[in-house]
Simulated scan of single mutants.
Amino acid sequence: MAENFHKPTQYSTDKFDTYEGGQDPAQIMRAAHDTAHALLEGARNSDDPAVLERIIAYTDQNGIDALAELWSRSSAGSLPGALWRIYLLRAVIQQDAVGTSLLFQRGIDTLATIDAAVTGAVNPTGPNEIKDLADQILRGLFDGDFGVALDRAASFSRILASGAGSVADDQELLNPERASELTTRADRYARMATEFTACAKLFRAGSLD
């Protein structure tokens, strides 16, 4: 059995900053949509709680690249595109819970909006709390109100964007390279927030495929 063991691919925050998936390619394989719908329907139609837990933790055993091959090139305004982005966020958080929680906490402290309330985040938000929150949002896609889960993901991303941008400002003079990295990350999170909001609107209009 040992030779069949597959170690999950580690998805670092550096890869997150530079990942170019989901750029709305002209042709998107129908398989991406079919697998996304099958996964969603399978979770919602199952009475076995273990099925949902396996779906939530799928990338822990298989690595994020397993989903990247299926969904990362899907349109941002599609079901596989939305699922891919939330799994990607969760993977980054799982692998750098300390760093991500610091950015999230800074975002809560600096962002004068209701986003923290929308996410359902506790304050302060430490590494364990942010991992739990990411799991709650992902779980909400499969056994809760899908639109609400997307709204929570959008708020979650806006908070991270604000936090990363604020820390980047602090680092501008002391560590310009680090500031540039954080600015890139802030832009990425902000874009994801916009994409999640758009997906929520499409879902409520019955147009998210």
Score class of each variant (00 low, 15 high):
Ser78Lys: 13
Ser78Trp: 00
Pro80Tyr: 01
Ala82Tyr: 07
Leu83Met: 15
Leu83Phe: 14
Leu83Lys: 08
Trp84Gln: 07
Trp84Arg: 03
Arg85Glu: 04
Arg85Trp: 03
Ile86Trp: 01
Ile86Arg: 02
Ile86Lys: 06
Ile86Glu: 04
Tyr87Met: 01
Leu88Met: 08
Leu88Gln: 09
Arg90Cys: 04
Ala91Ser: 12
Ala91Cys: 10
Ala91His: 01
Ile93Tyr: 02
Ile93Asp: 04
Gln95His: 13
Asp96Cys: 02
Asp96Gly: 11
Ala97Phe: 01
Val98Ser: 13
Gly99His: 07
Gly99Gln: 08
Gly99Leu: 07
Thr100Val: 06
Thr100Lys: 03
Leu102Thr: 11
Leu102Lys: 11
Leu103Lys: 13
Phe104Ile: 05
Phe104Asp: 08
Gln105Pro: 06
Gly107Tyr: 03
Ile108Pro: 04
Asp109Ala: 04
Asp109Arg: 06
Asp109Lys: 00
Thr110Ala: 11
Leu111Glu: 04
Ala112His: 14
Ala112Asp: 15
Ile114Glu: 15
Ile114Leu: 12
Ile114Met: 14
Ala117Pro: 00
Val118His: 05
Thr119Cys: 10
Gly120Arg: 01
Gly120Phe: 05
Ala121Asp: 06
Val122Gly: 02
Val122Trp: 03
Asn123Asp: 13
Asn123Glu: 14
Asn123Phe: 09
Pro124Trp: 08
Pro124Asn: 11
Thr125Tyr: 01
Asn128Pro: 00
Asn128Ala: 12
Asn128Val: 13
Asn128Gly: 15
Asn128Cys: 04
Glu129Arg: 02
Glu129Cys: 02
Ile130Phe: 09
Lys131Ser: 12
Lys131Asn: 11
Leu133Trp: 10
Leu133Gly: 05
Ala134Tyr: 03
Asp135Phe: 03
Asp135Arg: 11
Ile137Thr: 08
Ile137Glu: 05
Ile137Cys: 07
Arg139Ser: 15
Arg139Met: 13
Leu141Asp: 06
Leu141Ser: 10
Phe142Glu: 08
Phe142Cys: 09
Asp143Trp: 02
Asp143Ser: 10
Asp143Gln: 11
Asp143Gly: 01
Gly144His: 11
Gly144Gln: 10
Gly144Trp: 06
Val148Ser: 10
Val148Glu: 14
Ala149Trp: 13
Ala149Gly: 09
Ala149Pro: 00
Asp151Val: 01
Asp151Met: 01
Arg152Ile: 11
Arg152Val: 10
Ala153Arg: 08
Ala153Glu: 12
Ala153His: 11
Ala154Met: 04
Ala154Trp: 10
Ala154Pro: 02
Phe156Asn: 05
Phe156Met: 14
Phe156Tyr: 15
Ser157Tyr: 02
Arg158Gly: 00
Ile159Glu: 01
Leu160Tyr: 09
Leu160Asp: 02
Ala164Thr: 10
Gly165Trp: 09
Val167Cys: 02
Ala168Lys: 03
Asp169His: 05
Asp169Arg: 05
Asp170Arg: 07
Gln171Phe: 09
Leu173Phe: 12
Leu173Tyr: 13
Leu173Asn: 13
Leu174Phe: 14
Leu174Ile: 15
Glu177Cys: 00
Glu177Asn: 08
Arg178Thr: 12
Ala179Leu: 05
Glu181Ala: 07
Glu181Met: 14
Leu182Glu: 13
Thr184Ser: 14
Ala186Glu: 01
Ala186Thr: 01
